[in-house]
Amino acid sequence: MTSENASSVEITALGKYYNSFHALKNINLSIPAGKVTCLIGPSGSGKSTLLRCINFLEEYQEGAVEIDGQVIGLESVGGRKMSARRLREMRRSIGMVFQQFNLWPHMTAQQNVAEALVQVQGLSKAEAARKAAAALQKVGLGDKTESFPNRLSGGQQQRVAIARAVAMEPKLMLFDEPTSALDPELVGEVLTVIKDLASEGMTMVIVTHEMGFAAHVADQVAFLEAGELVSCAPPAEIFRNPSDARIKAFLETYHARNQF
């Protein structure tokens, strides 16, 4: 399942605890290369936690997350923690976009994008600046390269954050509710950018509350509740013909909330 520029992810028997709280319970999920997987579910169900286990921002205690057959974070399934150096190497090919953007406020848009190109990939400053400008161009911010984050709208900030991740040429992109912190009128511009990226064949995992977007762009939708993976199926099945009562109930609340 490994293609040249897209990773596949295999999650097996994944268990995660916050102290004694069992946040993820025996999660089994295949994320095929080049496909878009959306994670949905009620608040507190463990979507962010699952996403953050994929790049080991959260440590897990049971099972494994494998990226292209390589366990991330551990030396082997159930083994010792892998070296920090090796983890950094694996993270280089995994991009992440956060709900709160997490742009660095003391750097311009272009510096935000160029920073890791220089510090992690070892590009020259000039080469990094060129690549950063191109990445910003791609998300429609070619004229904002010199702007500091606090001079940008939320939608623009999130697009800078996407450019920052994409400029590293990751094989896997993780999005944690990329539009939840945005004013409604700014959601569209960010979703458009994500949709464009998806069409390029990058593997993507997207936690989202935008059901319309998930139905439209996802190849598969995974529904979580209370730390359990209830179902993972094509969007048509989840949204039109949900097999599980919990999914039905969730979607009903969602529709009720979005009716007016």
């Binding site: 950094r88 997490n102 510090q119 992690v120 954050a161």
Partner: peptide, 30 residues
């Protein structure tokens, strides 16, 4: 300095030393 600042850098594969030097300390100094 919000935790997400270092987290974004770590997710990109940045070395902890670099995170201190380039992300955290400049913001703390300001």
């Amino acid at each position: 300095v919000p935790h997400g600042q270092a987290e974004a850098a770590a997710a990109l594969g940045m070395h902890p030393f670099t995170i201190w030097k380039r992300i955290l300390i400049p913001q703390a100094l300001k």
